[in-house]
Structures are given as C-alpha cells and as structure tokens.
C-alpha cells in the first residue's frame, strides 16, 4: 500500500477527507446562494435565465460540476462508512447514558442530518438539474424555462416546506461541521479558534435561512404577473 492510500485510510486521514470535502461543499453553498438571489429580481427570471444558461455552457463550470459531484459523493460515502465503523467500535451499548452532558446534539447527529440533506439533494437535483440540464445535454428542448420550473415547484407548499425543513437540518449539520473541519485540519489555537466557532455559528444560521427564504418567497409573497 502506497503512503498516500495509507494516509487516507487511517482514522486521521478519513477525518481529513471529511474536513476537506466539507469545506469545499461549504464554499459551494456560497456560490449557489448568490445564484439563487437572482431569482428574487423582479424581472420575470431574465437575470436567472442568463445565469442558468451560463452555468449550462461555461467550460470552467462544467469541470467544477464534476469536481462538485465527486466532492458530494466522497463526503457522503466516507461519512456513512465512518459512521458504520464507529458504531462497530462499541458493540455493547450503555444501559444508562447521558451524552447531552458532554457534547452537543448537533455533533452527535451528523450522520442523520447529513442523510436527510442527502435525500433532499437527490430530490432537488431531480427537479432543477436532471430535468433541465441533462435534458439539454441530450438535445431535448424544454418548453418551460428553469425559472418557471422554480416558480411552479416552490408554489407547491409540500415541496417548499420540505425544502425549508432540509435547510434547518443543513444548519444543524453546519453548526458542527464548519468548526469541526478546522479542528480536523489541525487549525486550533486560542488566537483564532473562538473566531472560527463564532463564524461557524453565524454561517450555520444565516446561510440556510437565506436558502430557505427563496422558496418561501415564491410560496408566500410572489404573485405570478401574467404571461409566461
């Protein structure tokens, strides 16, 4: 076994994979969120249309898309594997256990919050990626634009509230994940760790909140202004 595979199959190495992919996915959230806000412009989706066309054709984006998919898959796969392995390290559990006395519920439920966010992601990709992007790859032209798909999806209360619930769980996941990634990378110092923890808390509240605002806007505020 080469040193590289030995490094990344050790317990510390597996954590490093989680931290590196996690931070990469965090950076993606910011990019994704900035795109979403184009939906809120009062131009019947003109700016968002331009944006989605750019995302469909730009070569750099196309490469990053593959990297992003790999990031998600590696993060989810390693996370599941770690959770299973860690479960095996304690075959007999305690009759009485009070983990709430020593750790946060967010840190103990990463595999659950992550799993639900993953399920959300599959549904999310089906609605806004597969039906549009993949269809256009295959030369199938869609009657409705991505903007119209967004509007009609979010005007369905079940879809929107599921989206909001997933964002709450994403917030829980980030609450632990953000600062935990820095600890795993060995970045722990009394000078900057309190700042990282504060930043992580703010990020885990503000970013999911802003994500959730878009579907809620279309459900509760947006009025279809005639025409298609």
């Amino acid at each position: 076994m080469g040193w590289l595979s030995k490094t990344f199959t050790s317990s510390v190495g597996k954590k490093l994979i989680m931290a590196l992919t996690g931070l990469f996915l965090i950076s993606f959230l910011i990019v994704h969120l900035s795109g979403n806000f184009l939906l809120l412009r009062n131009d019947n989706g003109a700016a968002f249309f331009q944006y989605s066309e750019f995302m469909k054709t730009n070569p750099v984006i196309l490469v990053m898309e593959v990297v992003l998919f790999l990031g998600f898959i590696i993060h989810a796969f390693s996370g599941f594997r770690l959770a299973l392995e860690n479960k095996k390290a304690r075959p007999v559990g305690y009759a009485v256990n009070r983990p709430s006395e020593n750790s946060s519920v967010f840190s103990r439920s990463m595999v659950w919050t992550g799993s639900i966010v993953f399920i959300f992601l599959v549904i999310h990709l089906k609605s806004f990626f597969v039906d549009h992007k993949v269809a256009s790859w295959m030369g199938v032209t869609h009657e409705e634009t991505l903007f119209q798909a967004v509007v009609s999806a979010f005007q369905n209360p079940v879809y929107t509230w599921f989206y909001v619930a997933a964002m709450v769980l994403l917030g829980f996941h980030l609450n632990h994940g953000f600062q935990s990634a820095f600890q795993t990378l060995g970045l722990n110092h009394k000078k900057y760790t309190p700042l990282i923890k504060k930043l992580g808390l703010i990020f885990s509240i503000v970013v999911p909140l802003l994500f959730a605002y878009v579907p809620l806007y279309f459900l509760l505020i947006y009025k279809t202004t005639g025409g298609n």
Binding site: S10, S11, V12, K14, K15, L82, E85, N86, K88, A89, R90, P99, E101, N102, S103, S104, S107, R108, M110, H176, S180, Q183, T184
Partner: peptide
C-alpha cells in the same frame, strides 16, 4: 495512530465529549 486503528477504536468526530469527561 496505526496501532490505535489496529486496536479497533473508532474515529474522532470532534464532539468534544472526551474533553468534557
């Protein structure tokens, strides 16, 4: 680290339970 893994201990997920206990 290699010996720790060989013994079958789990991986750290930074819950901080160890520090608290």
């Amino acid at each position: 680290v290699a010996q720790m893994d060989k013994e079958g201990f789990g991986s750290c997920t930074n819950t901080g339970a160890c520090e608290a206990e």
